[in-house]
């Protein structure tokens, strides 16, 4: 009898642990929602609008994005097979430059936001990857946007965005493939550096 009781307690304890560990990982949608909410809030924040607040707005947006978006993973996937072929130092260099470019792309895209409604449709989980399907309402036209996430230390992080069937990661991957074929890794780094410089020129001209 004592043994049975003990076993029961052990089982109970174990099952509680299991419940806890599954509950600790929130669903991909539940993790993505606050990130997007934080971003839309920042973008509708009147006190951050205008050119004077540009750098502060930019810094706050980037801080909010990094909570739910995994830029490192994005960079790795964009480079594809080449990622494993280059040196660790080159990986670091590429990640730094590519993250900068993605920042510019994101900030630019986000700044055209003007209160459009995001609707969450459904999520799909396959092992350690998930897809959250949403639509963004642009003047009555619903544009499908899918977020692709990766489970990273019990946290779901976005590593790709698919707008109307077009994947951001794949688009850059294909562009880089052509550049890598012709100009190798050094050429790619140079193209990235030039592209990032073009944004600096633009932003200082915009001030």
């Amino acid at each position: 009898m004592k043994n049975t009781l003990l076993l029961l307690f052990v089982l109970l304890g174990l099952s509680l642990c299991m419940v806890k560990s599954t509950e600790a990982i929130e669903s991909p949608t539940a993790q993505l929602k606050p990130t997007l909410k934080a971003l839309t809030d920042l973008l509708s924040d009147e006190s951050l609008k205008g050119d004077i607040n540009r750098s502060e707005r930019r810094a706050r947006i980037m801080a909010a994005i990094k909570v739910g978006f995994d830029f490192q993973e994005m960079c790795k996937r964009i480079l594809g097979r080449t990622w494993n072929e280059v040196q660790a130092e080159e990986q670091r260099q590429f990640t730094e430059l590519m993250t900068k470019l993605l920042e510019n792309v994101y900030i630019g895209k986000l700044e055209s936001y003007s209160g459009q409604q995001i609707e969450f449709l459904e999520e799909r989980v396959k092992g350690e990857r998930a897809q959250v399907s949403t639509t963004i309402d642009n003047k009555g036209v619903k544009i499908p946007v899918h977020y692709i996430l990766n489970l990273n230390d019990s946290k779901w992080m976005v590593y790709d965005i698919n707008i109307e069937g077009v994947s951001l990661v794949r688009n850059y991957m294909e562009q880089f493939k052509t550049i890598l074929r012709k100009e190798k890794f050094a050429g790619l780094i140079k193209v990235l550096e030039d592209k990032n410089k073009s944004f600096e020129v633009q932003s200082s001209a915009g001030k």
Binding site: N104, G165, V166, N171, E174, F176, I179, S198
Partner: peptide, 21 residues
């Protein structure tokens, strides 16, 4: 503005967009 090779970017986007449709 956002692409490093606009030709490849538009080609890829067109292809994927049409496939999705």
């Amino acid at each position: 503005r956002y692409s490093l090779d606009p030709y490849v970017s538009s080609r890829e986007a067109y292809h994927e967009y049409r496939n999705a449709r």
